Computed example of a mutant assay.
Amino acid sequence: MKIAIFTDTYIPQVNGVSKTLQRLASYLESQKIEYRLFAPQTKHSAFHSDMVYRFTSVPLIVYPECRLALPNISVIRKNLEHFRPDLIHIATPFNIGLAGLYLGKKLNIPIVGSYHTHFDQYLQYYELPLVSKLLWRYLHWFHHSFRTTFVPSEDARKELIRHGFSNLKIWSRGVDCDSFHPHFQEEWLKQKYSIKVPYILTYVGRLAPEKDLDTLMKIAKELPDVISRKVHWLIVGDGPLRKSLEKEALTNMTFTGYQKGRMLTQIYAGSSLFIFPSTTETFGNVVLESMACGTPVIASKAGGVQEIVENGKTGLLCTPGQVEEFTHSISKLLNDEKLLTKMNNSARTYALSRSWESIFSQLLLDYEEILTAHLVSYA
């Protein structure tokens, strides 16, 4: 089997889609499955390798972290004709994704796609709700030619069905429990960030409107004084809201910027709780990473996150936007060491059941089923 992957985001960009595709590429290599991946060129990425081809891109004005690629269709076509992939997997609906769709049809290569992001929900946060209907029309057209559209959660599947999509399959997400683990000392983290209070509350993710960070800041400000005096907040990530958030930050709040690898694991593992108010997640990779490090999650009961966090066992789920519920949940767990320890263990145990190996193995089986159906239709 030969796979061509088209995506408008890839490492070193930091988001759930780029990380998932990086892991997919690594898995394909481990299984000796040939692939080519077409992605945007970024400031810190190699231009291209034997398997990853990069194309010039420019930052979006409203969101510089996201980039608009300028793919060279003739170069991609020559590459595909030489590589002769059995299947094209399109991960994003923008310029590189459009190039994959166009060439897949031209060269009669079966196409599958994946849906990763609730863009229509993002529009509410950028004051563009009127664009929502046009966006859904476009996405419906874009995915219409796919043999299958893979979604990361049951919640995302139901959302697409509601908008008239068909041929949907769940391609869930896993976590590397060897890389993300609880075996780090909390004291090391406290020394690094000069934290002298007992508890660390952490958020990891983009610092952007769609992550409900207004809610996060209200939670921090409205914690009861008796709890607030005992906690320090670590805000991990970067994005268009960082400067404004830093201006309104409390004295017990540290912005760390992007973190990865061992450092990110140490932050998760050294934290008492992971706080995640976002309501727009199709899955929530960072939630699963935190749980793998033995850190329970307090999150909004929304999107794919509610399928990861078992309320009362691996964390607590709160009504979206209800600050009082979040502050009550934080207080409840920090005041009950026995329950907190129990949740630590349950979170880690759950994460151990979500291996990437089994998830990618199932994806390959789905690829094979799609290819078999394609061959039968042309027999």
Results as ranks from 00 to 15, higher is better:
N167H: 13
S114H: 04
N167S: 14
Y122C: 09
R173Y: 00
Y126S: 15
S145C: 07
P152D: 15
Q121D: 12
F184A: 08
S153H: 04
W141Q: 15
L128N: 10
L139E: 13
S132K: 11
H183W: 13
R157I: 02
E186K: 13
L123H: 12
R162W: 13
H183P: 04
Q185Y: 10
G164Q: 15
Q124M: 09
H118W: 09
K190R: 13
H140A: 11
L139N: 14
L160A: 07
H118G: 06
R173W: 02
H118K: 12
D178Y: 07
H116L: 00
W171C: 02
R157W: 04
Y115E: 05
R157S: 13
S166N: 14
T148M: 06
D176E: 05
Y125G: 15
T149L: 02
W188P: 02
Y122G: 11
E154I: 01
H163F: 05
L128E: 10
E186W: 01
K158I: 03
K158Q: 07
R137L: 05
R173V: 00
P152K: 15
K158T: 01
S132P: 00
T149R: 03
P129G: 08
H140N: 14
S145G: 15
F119V: 05
F150H: 04
E154S: 11
L160S: 09
R173K: 05
I161S: 14
P129Y: 09
D155G: 04
L189A: 09
G113K: 08
F146Y: 13
P152T: 06
F146V: 01
W188H: 09
S132T: 13
L130W: 09
K190W: 04
L189G: 08
S145V: 06
F184T: 07
S179V: 03
E154N: 10
T117P: 02
E187A: 14
W171E: 01
L135N: 12
W188V: 12
H181R: 15
D176M: 02
S179D: 10
K133P: 02
H143I: 00
Q124K: 15
L134W: 12
L123W: 09
L130G: 07
S166Y: 09
D176P: 00
K190Q: 09
T148N: 12
E154Y: 02
K169T: 03
H163E: 13
F146T: 04
Y126G: 10
H144L: 07
I161G: 10
H163I: 00
D178L: 10
H163G: 09
V112Y: 10
S114D: 00
V175M: 05
W136C: 04
F119R: 13
W171L: 04
R173I: 01
P129I: 01
F142W: 11
L160H: 08
G164K: 14
I161Y: 15
P182W: 04
D178R: 12
H163V: 00
H183L: 09
S172I: 02
E159A: 13
W188G: 10
G174Y: 02
F146L: 07
D176Y: 01
D176N: 07
Q185S: 15
D155P: 02
A156I: 01
L130Y: 14
Q124E: 13
S132D: 08
S179Y: 04
P129S: 08
G164F: 04
W141P: 03
Q121R: 11
N167A: 08
P152G: 15
H183E: 13
G164P: 06
Y122W: 13
I161D: 10
H116K: 07
Y125D: 14
H143M: 03
V151N: 02
